[in-house]
Computed example of a mutant assay.
Amino acid sequence: MAGMFIGEHTFKVDGKGRVSIPADFRRELEEGDPLASQSGRPRMVIVYGHDAQKQLQVYTYNDYRALAAEISALPRGSDRRKIMQSLILNKARPTEVDSDGRLVLPQALRDKIGLEGTAYFGGMGETFEIWKPEVFEAQNASVTSKLIEEQGEGFDPLSLLSEMEG
């Protein structure tokens, strides 16, 4: 598994769908692609998923291959495997960083998430996500509001880890 994608960044998207990839994210993508040191252009896989998915999930090349192997290990013909194949393997697009450190997002992917002039990059640990900034802000506000309602205003987000252990 590659390192960690953390933090948030916002970059302009030009008319051809080119958007800079945050420098620290590029380093993680390089670590996650064994051929990146030779080519200088790390590969990645963008998962655009089901129709209601509002963001693009970006995996390093190695992490996506590992995920594909996990899916292949599921029982053939099982509903779980069929769903994962349909939403993770079928709804994905391999690409690479261009020579200027940018990602070229095809029009179909930009249209899917309503991306126009600006892209929000959110580090999610082993992946990062690309959102239309306004959609991310609304989604984040909704999640935060729900957490505060459930946990109280002074809750510590790290307390959610201990809930999972129990």
Rank of each mutant, 00 (worst) to 15 (best):
A36Y: 01
V45T: 14
Y59L: 08
M44G: 10
R81V: 03
S37G: 12
A68Q: 02
Q38D: 09
G77P: 07
L35A: 12
S20H: 13
L29F: 09
I46F: 04
E8C: 06
V45Y: 02
F11G: 03
Q38A: 04
F5K: 08
P22D: 09
A66S: 07
A36N: 01
S39E: 03
E28D: 09
Q85D: 07
V58L: 10
E70A: 11
Y64F: 15
A73F: 07
Q57Y: 08
G15H: 08
D24M: 11
I46T: 14
N62L: 15
L35R: 05
F25E: 09
Y59C: 05
G17F: 07
H9A: 13
A68G: 01
F25W: 03
I71R: 05
D14I: 00
A68M: 12
V13W: 15
P42C: 09
V19I: 01
M4A: 15
P75V: 08
P34R: 01
Q57N: 13
I21F: 14
G15D: 13
L56W: 08
L74N: 07
A73Q: 08
L35E: 13
Y64T: 14
A73P: 02
S20P: 15
L56C: 10
E28A: 13
G49Q: 02
A36G: 09
K82T: 02
Q55W: 07
Y61F: 13
A66F: 07
L35T: 11
E31S: 08
D24F: 04
A68F: 06
K54V: 01
E28W: 07
V45S: 10
E70D: 11
I6P: 02
R26F: 10
G49T: 06
Y64H: 10
A52D: 04
S37A: 11
D14W: 04
K82F: 12
T10C: 11
E31M: 05
R65V: 15
A69N: 03
F5P: 00
V45F: 05
R43C: 11
A73N: 10
A36S: 06
N62G: 14
H50W: 14
N62F: 14
K54Y: 03
A23S: 14
D33V: 05
T60C: 15
R41K: 13
I6Y: 14
N62T: 14
A66D: 00
M44W: 11
A73D: 09
T10R: 15
K82C: 07
E28L: 12
K16S: 04
V47M: 03
I71K: 09
I46R: 10
P75A: 12
Y48H: 10
Y61A: 14
R43M: 06
A36D: 04
D51I: 09
R76E: 05
T60Y: 05
R65A: 15
F5H: 02
